[in-house]
Design a protein around this nucleic acid. Structure first.
Lengths: 142, 142
DNA sequence: AACTACATTATAATAATTCTAAACTATTGA
DNA sequence: TCAATAGTTTAGAATTATTATAATGTAGTT
């Protein structure tokens, strides 16, 4: 979703009614310069603490999944216990810092295009995603 | 773990006692030609149905995690609801069929080496994994 | 054989997510 | 403007996946 846009219009385009709760979520998620990575819990906390608005956990689940289905959020799964959502829905890759649990976007220049040489008969490729796990390089400490 | 090997020895090398339950799990997991992808539930079913052996769910969780920790199994996370374990612990990539929920190994020749041009200061790369999601190519149906 | 440390088990506890159904609200159209 | 209605929110219950517990069992050692 474009920055500073009219979220009411955007939600209507998605076929979602612009309720107070959804507008609060849009404000937190899409009204920012950079890509944002978050968990459901992060989002509930931000809305209740930073925005000082009451929202039910079920609504956050519902709305995040609605946004995901409509293509405005993408899920990035790290392992069975760590799953993030990403406001950047373009094809892009990630670094994941295993120590800080931080997910970082790769930009286009960080990684050469992925060249897949094999086709699976009768199948088309829906997505190609690279996850680069990193940690402190203690060898290079001075 | 090598095929047809002495699982008793292998388990001892890992510092794990060769119990009946662990040997059954080794038999199912490692005594086969090809890489095997499975969920915890798959494994419980295979042991109880195919091997006709009783095993508790907790033991399967414990042992899978022990094998994973020792580097004999690798977790492959598809999304927050789909997590597989892989008996192929080498660095390799995967196709995932979103219709059949089947995970398929890429072999070395299926994909060109991934070239990462950006370093994150003070961090070293622990792993690089590519996940290629595929589905039926209905455009090409005749 | 007996001791000890590790394993297994059923079950309970916890955590994450989804479901339910009642109350609420945005939209529509008379 | 004001129902009617269809979609939304909510608290709490239900479900699912995973981990913890503590009693019992077993492998390895002496």
């Amino acid at each position: 979703m474009p920055k500073k846009c009219n979220f009411i219009e955007k939600l209507r385009e998605l076929g979602l009614r612009p309720t107070k709760q959804r507008l609060n979520m849009c404000e937190v998620l899409f009204n920012r310069e950079k890509t944002f990575h978050f968990t459901i819990n992060d989002l509930v906390k931000m809305i209740s603490e930073k925005m000082n608005q009451k929202i039910s956990l079920a609504t956050v689940y519902n709305t995040v999944h609605a946004f995901e289905k409509k293509g405005y959020l993408k899920e990035i799964s790290i392992d069975s216990h760590k799953s993030y959502f990403d406001t950047n829905t373009s094809v892009h890759h990630h670094f994941f810092d295993e120590e800080t649990n931080e997910l970082i976007d790769c930009d286009e220049n960080d990684i050469d295009p992925i060249n897949i040489k094999k086709n699976i008969a009768g199948k088309k490729i829906n997505s190609v995603e690279v996850l680069i796990k990193v940690a402190s390089d203690n060898q290079n400490q001075k």
